[in-house]
Design a binder for these strands. Structure first.
Length: 193
DNA sequence: TATGAGATCAACT
DNA sequence: GTTGATCTCATAC
């Protein structure tokens, strides 16, 4: 039986959580799949929303671990993060891509797309496919409508620099499932370099 | 394949 | 007024 991931799982170093989330199953109202790509954001990181202190938008990041931080990106998209470490540490993991396994028909309806690879290949796409919006900011991840289950042990994890940022862009804080066709952009290790 | 514009909101200068 | 943890569509090479 799948093991649910609860608060203690998130009350750890944000990089350990990010790596362990690869291969885990993430569902929202029964729709979702296997997490194949995430990025870590530490509060000491200039690219983190929490770097310059607390604002109404990022307040959830300053709360306890194991909660969802949902924010609007570029005015139109929603992106979901999992709050990590301890209360006030303001670190989080951005969910960037999912391999769809549950509720694929519902995701296709929301995204109006046939290509399964693109349904959840990007942080904005993940929220659109699963139906996550700002209304779900601050909800606990271990109770409905959210559900999180541990995946297989020892999945192969690829690591690389984060995407779409300008500050601290060289830090290798992006984690992915090695060889997955569902990531938003390939990892260099996949391309064989 | 690659680059560019537009959509449109919160935070910051 | 500008920028950004984005995506889609259009046009160009």
């Amino acid at each position: 039986m799948p093991r649910p991931l609860r608060s203690p799982f998130f009350a750890r170093d944000v990089h350990a959580v990010a790596r362990d989330l690869i291969g885990a199953t993430f569902l929202f109202k029964g729709v979702g799949g296997r997490i194949v790509e995430v990025e870590a954001y530490h509060h000491t990181d200039p690219a983190a929303h929490s770097y310059n202190g607390r604002t109404p938008r990022n307040a959830v990041m300053f709360g306890p671990p194991g909660y969802a931080y949902v924010y609007r990106s570029y005015g139109i998209h929603w992106c979901v993060n999992f709050v990590c470490e301890g209360e006030g540490s303001a670190s989080a993991v951005l969910i960037r891509a999912i391999e769809p396994t549950e509720g694929i028909a519902a995701m296709r309806r929301r995204r109006r797309l046939k290509d399964e690879r693109l349904l959840c290949a990007g942080p904005g796409r993940v929220c659109q496919a699963l139906g996550i919006t700002g209304a779900h900011n601050g909800l606990a991840l271990d109770t409905p409508p959210f559900a999180l289950m541990a995946g297989e042990e020892d999945v192969p994890v690829a690591i690389g620099p984060r995407i779409g940022i300008t500050k601290a862009a060289d830090l290798p804080w992006r984690y992915g499932l090695k060889g997955s066709l569902f990531v938003s952009k390939p990892f260099r290790t996949q391309a064989g370099r």
